[in-house]
Nucleic acid binder design. Structure first.
Lengths: 147, 147
DNA sequence: TATTGTTATACTCTATAACTATA
DNA sequence: TATAGTTATAGAGTATAACAATA
């Protein structure tokens, strides 16, 4: 009955798991983990950040960020720098190696996008994107209704 | 330049994270975790299974399955039953509570599918699904090329 | 008094390697 | 000899709670 709609949902979930597997490959190559990669990605978007800021962006406890940053310091991707105006706080700052990893992430992201959608005709991509937009909006509405 | 394609990819990733958040809500309500829910889902697809089978289906080590099953036994969702013909093996079998959880998962899955795509006009859904199909095929090809 | 980060503690998921019981 | 599952050990991610230094 509803198999049509669940089939589409299943394909979406399958694609999600494939994208996750691709990210795994990146992580295997770089020696990073998913959580640390996520932190680096956020750092690439926001620039040097306090751990509180990172905790909020990653939706994770501050304690957790301490552990992730410990790992990234050990691997040489970030350093803890003093905050210029608040001596309680720390600015997690990418090193040269960290900036390189962020650049790699970005170009691998762009590669995947190009390879996945580069051959899709414009009109179809429009329809695809609009459907995604609606689906995202629907989802957000649903999650606000029952949090 | 390539922002068009990465935007579409970002929306796909956003939708993935929203679907994951929805699953989290289910798990919070049921007291299950992602890994245990996944095992239950597989059990719902395959029926009572050996831990080896589950390990292969979940792409995880047999040792890991031991831990997941331990948790699900404690929470009352599955039992370990003797294998009828191989005394080394065990059949992980859902209890009544486990079967209920699997049913809840299925109906929540169907609900989400209906709510997400129920209002999308047929022709658009066709285009969306075809694009997903192509994208999945492209991805699989890519991952075979560079494993 | 409130905020930033850390120490202490604990649970889950994950892996490898060695071991037991059975095929 | 090979297979099914467990014990032993270890690392990563996550959480809560208590605490120090600073605002």
């Amino acid at each position: 009955m509803e198999s049509r709609l669940t089939t589409v949902l299943d394909k979406l979930l399958l694609l999600s798991s494939l994208m996750a597997a691709d990210l795994d490959r990146f992580e295997r190559d770089s020696g990073l983990t998913t959580a640390r990669t996520h932190l680096l990605w956020v750092l690439g978007l926001s620039g040097p950040s306090t751990q509180q800021t990172l905790a909020a962006a990653l939706d994770v406890t501050p304690r957790n960020v301490t552990g992730l940053v410990d790992g990234l310091v050990t691997s040489g991707h970030v350093t803890r720098e003093p905050h210029p105006s608040d001596r309680r706080a720390i600015l997690v700052t990418p090193t040269a190696q960290g900036r390189r990893a962020i650049e790699d992430l970005r170009s691998s992201h762009a590669d995947v996008a190009r390879q996945l959608f580069g051959d899709v005709p414009g009109a179809r991509l429009d329809t695809f994107e609009s459907t995604l937009d609606e689906t995202i909006a629907t989802f957000r509405r649903l999650m606000e209704e029952s949090p």
